[in-house]
């Protein structure tokens, strides 16, 4: 494991939104890496910086947001140093992205085929016929029946699952090295969800892609990812291989997340929740961002951000009081 080279390596990434009320750091010194063929799940509640992180990797953070620090290395090359035109070539060809709601992520007035073609033609020197062939091939690869016919369909003519498959076909049409999936199954019903996840795993193996899988569904995470990164308030709380994280959560936030899941076969009147709410952008505690909601909070948590400590070779946690709460 140690001698492998990570496909995507993010180091000390920092993104800041320059709001009228003052700058707000949405991501504060985030570091992670994804190896070829590996899936990194990123979990966290709304507003914790998951989506900002993936847009930062794409360098598509709109005004007033900016990447204010860190490095994003793709195969050792720092993407942040690339000129805009070269970055445009990277997007779609080397890093692709899939969105939550395929209906809004596909252009309603272009056919599925046109949209995939465009993608292929944009990044590769192929003729229109070849692009069409490739598109149909991709459509059948993602399990769309009678791809020749679907090629000429508009997004609204397909079902939700089909649309997401088409979206995946589009993202993968240039065989990217990194795929960022931003809650790709949230808008789908459970059976379709399972099919799409399975498809993900098959395609990942086939193309040996590094996948960054963003979700707030722990069930989905346990299904697809090799390692999990738990985020809160723009920072890493805990990162560990999936099995280990689920069996042995160290950070109080992770533990609380695990506890607030409904458990199969148990009848409980109410689900457990995490006390309190996420603070407003400018009201995060100076120290640990979770301090105001943490059951184990002490004075130092309020004042000094916790250091990242190693629990086991691949398991890190940022907390003064790691360990399972009894």
């Amino acid at each position: 494991m140690e001698n492998r080279v990570p496909t995507l390596k993010v180091q000390n990434l920092e993104t800041t939104f320059f709001l009228k009320s003052g700058p707000f750091r949405a991501v504060k010194g985030l570091s992670y890496e994804i190896f070829p063929g590996e899936t990194l799940g990123i979990v966290g509640e709304s507003g914790c910086g998951k989506s900002v992180t993936s847009l930062a990797v794409m360098q598509l953070i709109d005004n007033p947001g900016k990447i204010t620090g860190g490095q994003i290395l793709l195969d050792g090359q720092d993407l942040l140093k690339l000129p805009t035109a070269q970055m445009e070539d990277v997007r779609g060809a080397k890093i692709a992205m899939i969105f939550q709601e395929p209906m809004t992520a596909l252009n309603p007035v272009l056919t599925i085929g046109q949209q995939i073609d465009e993608q292929v033609l944009r990044h590769e020197k192929v003729s229109n016929d070849e692009a069409r062939k490739r598109s149909i091939e991709m459509l059948s690869l993602v399990g769309i029946p009678s791809p020749e016919e679907r090629y000429g369909n508009y997004p609204h003519q397909l079902s939700g699952g089909m649309r997401q498959r088409a979206m995946i076909a589009m993202a993968l049409s240039c065989h990217p090295k990194v795929l960022i999936a931003d809650e790709p199954t949230t808008a789908l019903d459970v059976t379709i969800q399972a099919q799409i996840l399975e498809l993900f795993q098959t395609l990942q193996k086939k193309f040996n892609m590094a996948v960054q899988f963003i979700t707030h569904d722990l069930g989905v995470i346990s299904e697809v990812s090799d390692r999990v990164l738990v985020m809160y308030g723009g920072q890493v709380c805990e990162s560990a291989p999936t099995q280990e994280l689920f069996n042995n959560p160290q950070h109080p936030y992770t533990a609380a997340l695990m506890n607030s899941r409904p458990k199969l076969g148990q009848r409980t009147k109410r689900l457990q929740t995490i006390e309190g709410t996420v603070p407003a952008p400018h009201e995060f505690p100076k120290g640990c961002p979770f301090a105001n909601r943490c059951p184990k909070v002490t004075q130092i948590c309020w004042d000094v951000p916790p250091p990242v400590t190693q629990v086991s070779p691949q398991h890190i946690v940022a907390c003064y009081h790691p360990g399972v709460q009894k």
């Binding site: 598509l60 997007r91 779609g92 992205m97 969105f99 809004t104 992520a105 309603p108 944009r122």
Partner: peptide, 12 residues
């Protein structure tokens, strides 16, 4: 709309 962002992520 998201499809414009999607188009950007695909390098348009």
């Amino acid at each position: 709309r998201e499809f414009i962002l999607a188009a950007r992520t695909l390098g348009c």
